[in-house]
Design a protein around this nucleic acid. Sequence first.
DNA 1: ACCCGATTTGCAAATGCGTCGCAGGTGTTA
DNA 2: TAACACCTGCGACGCATTTGCAAATCGGGT
Lengths: 143, 143
Amino acid sequence: MRPQKAEKTDEVQGLPRITKQRRAIFAALQGDASHPTAEEVYLRVKEELPHISLATVYRNLKLLARQGLIREISTGEGPNRYDFRTHEHAHFQCDRCGRILDVEMGLPRELTRDLERTGFRVRSHELVLHGLCPDCGAASSAD
Amino acid sequence: MRPQKAEKTDEVQGLPRITKQRRAIFAALQGDASHPTAEEVYLRVKEELPHISLATVYRNLKLLARQGLIREISTGEGPNRYDFRTHEHAHFQCDRCGRILDVEMGLPRELTRDLERTGFRVRSHELVLHGLCPDCGAASSAD
DNA sequence: ACCCGATTTGCAAATGCGTCGCAGGTGTTA
DNA sequence: TAACACCTGCGACGCATTTGCAAATCGGGT
């Protein structure tokens, strides 16, 4: 059986392969709650695969995100970040320390339902909150 | 009475002036619900001030946003966009036509209240929804 | 109206982040 | 193992935005 070919008129590329780079990048993300940037993932993976290219890291992070295996976060401030947790949740970026923290917060159904009633089709959403995280909020009070 | 000087240890710059460029940029945004990019604002303002620089447009859009006179939107896809409406509302970006539409949707109080109860201080949030807008949703059904 | 100093502008160069083209390497199926 | 599509590493490129700097401008005080 031949590998599945692109059949749609769309530019669908064939099935992704499991290369050692792709595996290493995915593995580097597992369990890492720090929401690393591509650059940070690159540095980490480099320890295992010293010859890996930054472009490869970018390509694979994008690909893994398209596959839904990881999540891509754009905060509108600095480079994109990546999250191994793919379930619905929001992100909180601290104004002071810049860290991004996961926030278990789903968008109320009724909000999107209202939208869909007016003809929209909601596929996904991205919610980023800004302010002070517990650590920095406390430090700031002390000032 | 002397003009107010920067007194804080922080790098606070003096009071913003009302230059014709700044006024024109702000004016260009008023009533424009299309969420233009800096480039688009630049082209529009250029008609009135042919010698204006793109850098000036960038600088002023950032400044106006810091002043809270306009809102900066980063969709994580392409350049930043600007919105003359500063009240709390979300944005919907259409997967097909790329347009950004305003969505009158506020984040439920209880969600942020829960967060603040765990030590966070929420200053603002940015909510971007993705999917198909009414126009494109209909077109897509026809395919 | 004129001064004066801080802010702003225009310009070009620089930066940051990410993508692309290509030649050679590698995973996967037959 | 052959074949071929997918992938990789590399450097060059692209877009969006920022920055350095000298000249222009704003706006309060005189």
